[in-house]
Design a protein around this nucleic acid. Structure first.
Lengths: 195, 195
DNA sequence: TAGAGTAGAGAACGATGGTTCTCTGCGCAA
DNA sequence: TTGCGCAGAGAACCATCGTTCTCTACTCTA
């Protein structure tokens, strides 16, 4: 018999793969059971309802996203490169052949209208990413309005890459981000000179 | 007995409202029937399957989007204002209290993994918007790389506004677009001077 | 070895899905 | 008026959903 943590991880990773590929409602719990190899009884002992499983998937994705961004950012040198590294991280992700957009956006569109728990989890993840980018902008000494603009580019790149199927949306977003960053710093330097 | 076109319009507009608010799979055909007042027999005579109804909803949204963009753009003066007008159009849309993101993105996330027809319809709408923006950029004399960047901002604004619930994503997108446009034109003027 | 307890497989259950069918009733031609 | 045809309401149908239950079999202790 397998360990509880192992069973939990198997169920969540299986559910993640299936929900992300086909949508949540298109995947039955029976399929999760078959593909994870964990019995329904065990699954329901770990996750009281499908909704809880969906939330567990979102929590897992949040952790993965955070460590991914951290890794990408930490590899970059200058503060401005650290901002651009976020878009390199996106580019890498978009090239995975299982890529099908941002799971948070997809789940929100499918379930957010009726499930407050899902909507709230998605909102929190997006807000957390926004805070992360704002912090990177602050560290680079950029103006406050830059962060939400860069976030829009990242979000747009995710949906565009998903729908078009072409990963070069990340390159467009990176180029646009580069322009915005450059202009923002010119602007703030001008502001400094004006003082 | 009501006209065929009237019945069709009633069914599609009802399905649009319900699918958009709750997601496609969360809404049964029986609810569409109840809320539209058109019998199931009639609905299935007009739309052979739920999938066809979903496609009809997408076609309707495509028409509305196109006329909306056309209206917004035609009200603006200079070619560069015409580009920015797209973001004013978004701002207006985001303030509607039924706003819940881009239906194409939502439907793609929910159904695009399994339904090629839906995925293709969404892809085509996004490609059409991209062509539209590219044409506006061309008319304004901007460089070719500007259009996909502006599109990313528009897409990002839609999902961000939907998830955060705050319509000011449109303002951020507009400001970023303004910066990108200004930089692009400075760049192309420099290029012209260099000739 | 005997027995208690637990895990797994999957049948069972009630609800609901998309889709079809039946039955009722109304309008209309002869 | 009579019979025909079609529209509408919703019951019916089968599959599948999320969830629970049962039964078998195995493990571990005394």
């Amino acid at each position: 018999m397998i360990d509880e943590e192992t069973a939990r991880e198997r169920v969540v990773s299986t559910a993640d793969r299936l929900f992300y590929a086909h949508g949540v409602q298109a995947v039955g719990m029976d399929t999760v059971r078959t593909e994870s190899g964990v019995s329904l009884k065990r699954i329901y002992a770990l996750f009281p309802s499908k909704d809880d499983l969906v939330l567990a998937v979102l929590r897992r994705r949040t952790r993965q996203w955070d460590t991914g961004v951290t890794g990408a950012v930490s590899g970059a040198g200058t503060p401005r490169d650290r901002l651009l590294a976020v878009f390199d991280f996106l580019a890498e992700w978009f090239r995975e052949d299982t890529f099908r957009g941002c799971a948070f956006i997809n789940f929100f569109g499918e379930l957010g209208g009726d499930s407050n728990r899902v909507a709230e989890a998605v909102r929190e993840q997006k807000a957390s990413f926004q805070r992360r980018v704002a912090e990177l902008v602050r560290e680079a000494g950029g103006p406050g309005h830059l962060a939400p603009q860069l976030v829009l580019l990242a979000e747009g790149a995710q949906t565009t890459a998903a729908i078009s199927g072409e990963p070069d949306a990340a390159a467009h977003a990176r180029a646009a981000a580069d322009t915005l960053i450059r202009c923002a710093f010119e602007g703030s330097q001008e502001a400094e000179r004006a003082l």
